[in-house]
């Protein structure tokens, strides 16, 4: 993209994010390992991965806080790095809010409002009320961790940014605050759809909010697909070990546990009617498994690759 090309932000619906062989290295450590994928504009995406999987580095790169070591990031078709106009559309909220602790709550809000062309003061006011926060001269450093986290997500939502990212927003928020956050995130999203990426470890709590799920492990992309498709694909087969092995031969077996003569295998595959009938005939029980268990099966050290 040439620097002179006029940049026209999408009026509504958020930006598309395209990654091609995106790699970020720190010295000899590869934090993000050759990820290629496209995030749809206007989708709420769950970014899942174990600690150290590269979620935060990936988000910081998408937010143009870092330059890729190699490969490309394209947001609304353009490279966001040092692209001032586009960067105003990208908001990354970390749980501690990256606040200057010596600045007052009121000034922290004013700074965010000044930087964000789509700032919605009414939304912010509603959120502050909901979290029982006040925009006053209190220094951010004097707030509790929970209040700081609530202020951070409130500002993130109020920015109205076409790409809004939350890195582990659950840290610091208690359960009622998290539910308030989910409600407000959905309400503002439905009023004005945008691209939202949330990394979290609270998969079973948040999964229903995600349209798409991205799972990364050791910096690499394991999968990126609609959450509902992933739910429909995960199946646990439990029965006599030999029968389970015979039936799952050729399937993508994620994990397998054995207790005496019984084996339980998690597969990522759709079973047709014929397979189901064969399973029943062989004394194998088929059970759906929750997204969180699928995630564990996919990313555990024992995961069969």
């Amino acid at each position: 993209m040439s620097d002179s090309a006029p940049f026209t932000p999408s009026p509504i619906g958020g930006h598309t994010i395209e990654l091609r062989d995106l790699t970020v290295r720190f010295g000899s450590t590869v934090a993000v390992d050759s990820i290629s994928t496209t995030m749809r504009a206007g989708a709420i995406v769950g970014l899942l991965g174990r600690n150290g999987a590269g979620k935060s580095t990936l988000m910081r790169t998408l937010a143009a806080h870092r330059r890729p070591s190699s490969g490309t990031v394209r947001i609304a078709g353009e490279d966001p790095y040092e692209h001032a106009q586009l960067m105003a559309d990208l908001c990354l909220v970390r749980h501690d809010g990256d606040f200057n602790l010596d600045v007052s709550v009121a000034d922290s809000i004013a700074i965010a409002a000044a930087l964000r062309p789509r700032w919605d003061a009414a939304v912010l006011e509603r959120l502050l009320d909901r979290f029982q926060l006040r925009s006053d001269r209190t220094k951010v450093g004097a707030l509790s961790l929970g209040q700081r986290a609530a202020l951070a997500v409130s500002i993130g939502i109020a920015t109205g940014s076409p790409v809004t990212m939350f890195d582990e927003p659950h840290l610091g928020l208690d359960a009622p605050s998290r539910y308030a956050f989910y409600d407000e995130l959905l309400a503002t999203y439905m009023a004005a759809p945008r691209t939202i990426i949330v990394s979290t470890h609270l998969i079973d709590e948040m999964a229903a909010l995600f349209e798409d799920v991205i799972i990364i492990d050791h910096g690499a992309l394991l999968l990126h697909e609609p959450a509902d498709e992933l739910r429909a694909r995960g199946i646990e087969l439990t029965g006599p070990a030999a029968a389970v092995d015979a039936l799952t031969a050729g399937m993508s077996v994620l994990s397998s546990r054995t207790l005496g003569p019984t084996r339980s295998a998690v597969v990522l595959d759709r079973l047709d009617a014929d397979m189901r009938a064969r399973a029943t005939a062989a004394g194998i029980a088929l059970g759906p498994i929750p997204l969180q268990d699928l995630f564990v099966a996919l990313t555990s050290e024992e995961a069969v690759r």
Binding site: M206, D228, P290
Partner: peptide, 16 residues
């Protein structure tokens, strides 16, 4: 327990 507690996370939610 999911935030939308009525639906489980085991089968496609749209189907539920």
């Amino acid at each position: 327990m999911s935030a939308g507690a009525v639906f489980d996370d085991r089968t496609a939610i749209y189907r539920q």
